[in-house]
Amino acid sequence: MKLYLKYLKIHVQSMMEHKASFFLTMAAQVMTTITAFLGISCLFLRFHSVQGFSYQEVLLGYSVILFSFSLAEMFARGFDAFGSILSNGQFDRILLRPRNDIFQVLATKVEFTRIGKLLQAFVMMLYVIFTSDISWTPCKAAIVVLMIFGGAALFSGLFLVYAALCFFTTQGLEFLNIFTDGGRELGKYPMGIYGKAVLRFFTFLVPLAMIQYYPLLYLTGRDSRTILGLCPLTGFVFLIPCHALWKFGVRHFVSTGS
């Protein structure tokens, strides 16, 4: 952990070398999510609710997803950009160091520009907290926090899968964005509204609904079972198979070197 803080310090220093471009990139990041937010708002100006979910309730789900996605992007960016780490030989260098490989990949990149998106997610969340009909309790607040971190773990796991597959092929892996970007896209709305098949996919395969939809049912009082608040823990469980795949990938890399 101490070593990770040192890495962070280096990243902050590097960032400070390019302040202007840092803020512009951050502004651009925020702009992409603001347009998404505007899109939702336009639709709600017209339709007012979707499958019984109000604007505030939808925004709560979206802000959780945006929050966790941005957290994952910020800290697990090393995996997201793993193709280039592999092709420019940086991974060779990582193997030359007496430290855990996952840790080092995580430490290669920290994308501070995502702070802007985090801020936006936070503002949206505040808006929901103050305007929605949900009666907040400490327990419900804790569930929101759990949703955010469970989601961050889940998205990091997806990035890890991407990185692990980079060991086998460097081309065509963009299709994995279906799960990351696609998850974020569908996560704009409560994931149950798309029908049973989609919900099942996001419950059992890529358990995004466990992070967003089921706890949301509890938070909005549609379902009174408190156990739904614990669903986001699935995000952490999801990391286990992802890690196994990564280990397998490293073994393959060391034996082929391609």
């Binding site: 101490k2 070593l3 040192k6 220093q13 590097s14 070398e17 390019h18 160091r97 007496p98 430290r99």
Partner: peptide, 15 residues
Amino acid sequence: DVPVIDSFCLLKDIY
């Protein structure tokens, strides 16, 4: 982007 000495200090911790 960082001074060489900072890279060295990080390597110190890595090893």
